[in-house]
Design a protein around this nucleic acid. Structure first.
Lengths: 131, 131
DNA sequence: TTAAACCTTCCAGCAGGTGGAAGGTCAAGC
DNA sequence: GCTTGACCTTCCACCTGCTGGAAGGTTTAA
């Protein structure tokens, strides 16, 4: 199977598939003409990676999950721990963004938004001594 | 004023201050020995940028806000629009992350997390035909 | 034979800096 | 006068996760 067929099957681009290869995530064979040839194991790994990335895992986390997928001796506790950790990170990010949204909301409320230059938003960003 | 003093005053690192200069956000003078010399305008601009970044604006947005800060003829409607737009983006991000958190939570719940290799998380990532 | 649609490698760039190397300068203490 | 340490300078590379494009080779079909 050539790369564009694999791209179609996995939802990844050919570029991304080659990139994952440079990272050592897959290792397809080569045909006589130099073209990469993919087997079902490669396709499965790439599908796994695509889903892990889509779920929100980083590439390094996805690599770890792929390692666990490929390891029949894995302990599910290990997998769960990884996901739990990710969940905590995501919750932290949500809290961070919610605080940001509140700040922005306060700014929008405080600014009259007309043709005049006076602007509470600019004032807040300019002056730390603001009440 | 030398760069490390400015770093202290603004909460930015010297590296970042130099980086902002390469972006054209500030343009400090040079002393005879080649050292950068900062005036109060530079410090104010950098403080403005630091606050804009801390509030969550990207560098490009911060640059726009700085432009508006420096422009006495600005219309506050313009500023407000920019912030409103950012707020919408942040809310989108929050929704995205909340969906992610739900997926992850579902995974954590579904995985027994013991010494056995069987793991619902791995299964979900491996198999799209999962119910 | 030629055109389109593949495939290959390599180089550069996005955000927003950060780290480090290699070197010049300045102030204080001996 | 010399050394030490804390400054300062420039430049280049790296981080994430790709993406775009250039320049070229291959295959397929008309």
């Amino acid at each position: 199977m050539n790369i564009s067929e694999v791209a179609r099957l996995t939802g990844l681009t050919s570029k991304t598939i080659r990139y994952y290869e440079t990272l050592g995530l897959i290792d397809p064979d080569r045909a006589a003409n130099g073209y990469r040839t993919y087997g079902s194991e490669d396709v499965e790994a790439l599908q796994f990676l695509q889903r892990a990335r889509a779920t929100g895992f980083g590439l390094d986390e996805s690599r770890q999950l792929l390692g666990l997928y490929r390891e029949p001796q894995r302990h599910s506790a290990h997998v769960r721990e990884l996901v739990q950790h990710k969940l905590e990170q995501v919750n932290e990010q949500i809290n961070h963004l919610q605080a940001m949204a509140q700040t922005l909301q306060g700014m929008v409320k405080a600014c009259r938004g007309d043709d005049a230059p006076d602007c509470a938003i600019i004032d807040r960003l300019a002056d730390s001594e603001r009440k």
